[in-house]
Design a binder for these strands. Structure first.
Lengths: 139, 139
DNA sequence: CTGTTTGCAAACTATTTGCAATAAA
DNA sequence: TTTATTGCAAATAGTTTGCAAACAG
C-alpha cells in the first residue's frame, strides 16, 4: 500500500489528519518493518517533540482501520508494516532483519482444510527463521 | 514428551535435578501451554517459596536443551510446552486458549522450496487464529 | 467552537539480573 | 566440599494510561 493511498483512506474514513500521523505513515513506508521505538527514533530526528504515546496511538489507529499490520515475532517486540497483499516474513537470526517473502504454495488457506472440525479460522501468522543471504556469505 | 522422559534426560545431560525443576516439568505437562506466570501461580499453590526467577531459569534451561518449546504468539507473552513432534497451534481469539493441531499437508518444509534463493531456513513458527468449537457454540 | 489528538510523566507487565544464602552431587 | 541453583528485590524494556494543553475540522 502506498503512502498516498493510506493518507487518502484516512480522509475517507473521516479520521483527522495530523502532521504526526502523516510522518508515521511515511516512515512506515520507508522503513519496511520497524518497531514502534525504531520509528520513534527516526521520527524525532526530523520532527522533534513527538511522543512515544503518539506513535503507539497512531499505529494502533492505523491497525484498527486495516491500514497497518502488526507483526508479532519471536523477539516479543511488535514490528509494523503498511498493509500488503498476503505474504510471509523471514527473520534472519543473525542480523535480525525481516524480509518479505511470497506466500508459499499451495497457500495456507488450503492447508487449513486439514484442521480439526469445529474450528473457525480467521487467519494465521507465520514467521520463517534462518540466515539471510548477506549473513550466509559472511559466516 | 512425557514427564518421566524429561526427568530422565535431565540426568543424562548431567543437569542437576531440584524439586523446583521437577515441579515445573510436571506442571508443564498438566497445563499444556502455560505462560511463565500461569505456571508460577499454580506452582506456589503446592510449593510456596518458589520465585519467578526460578521458573524463568528452569524454562530457559529446558528450552536450551530442547526439552521445552517457547511459543511466541500474538499476545506478546511467551507460552511454553514440553517438546513434541511437529505440530501447529490454534489460538481462540475469544477464550485465548491454545489448541494443538496436526501440521497441515503438504507440510511446511516443502512449502519453503518456493522461497527466494540464498535464504537458509532453520524453521518456522505458525499461529492460526480464529474461534474454537466451544466459543463458536456460545456465540 | 467542539471534540480529538498531542506530549508528558507515571504506571504497568513481562522478563532479566545481581547477589548472598542454600542445596545437589 | 564444591559448584550450581535458589529467592529476593531491584532493574529493564516495551507498551499503556491519565490528563491538561494544543489543534483539526
Amino acid at each position: 500500500m502506498s503512502v498516498e493511498s493510506v493518507l487518502r483512506q484516512f480522509k475517507e474514513k473521516g479520521l483527522r489528519m495530523t502532521p504526526q500521523r502523516a510522518h508515521v505513515t511515511k516512515l512506515l513506508y520507508e522503513m519496511g518493518h520497524p518497531t514502534a521505538d525504531q520509528l520513534y527514533c527516526r521520527l524525532i530526528e526530523r520532527y522533534p517533540y513527538v511522543s512515544h504515546a503518539t506513535v503507539y496511538n497512531t499505529l494502533k489507529l492505523l491497525k484498527e482501520h486495516g491500514l497497518v499490520t502488526e507483526l508479532t515475532h519471536s523477539d516479543r517486540v511488535s514490528h509494523y508494516e503498511l498493509a500488503q497483499a498476503e505474504h510471509w516474513h523471514f527473520t534472519c537470526k543473525s542480523c535480525k532483519e525481516i524480509f518479505d517473502m511470497e506466500a508459499g504454495e499451495p497457500g495456507l488457506p488450503r492447508v487449513f482444510s486439514s484442521l480439526q472440525e469445529g474450528f473457525v479460522v480467521d487467519g494465521y501468522r507465520i514467521e520463517i527463521y534462518g540466515t539471510c543471504p548477506n549473513c550466509s556469505k559472511v559466516l
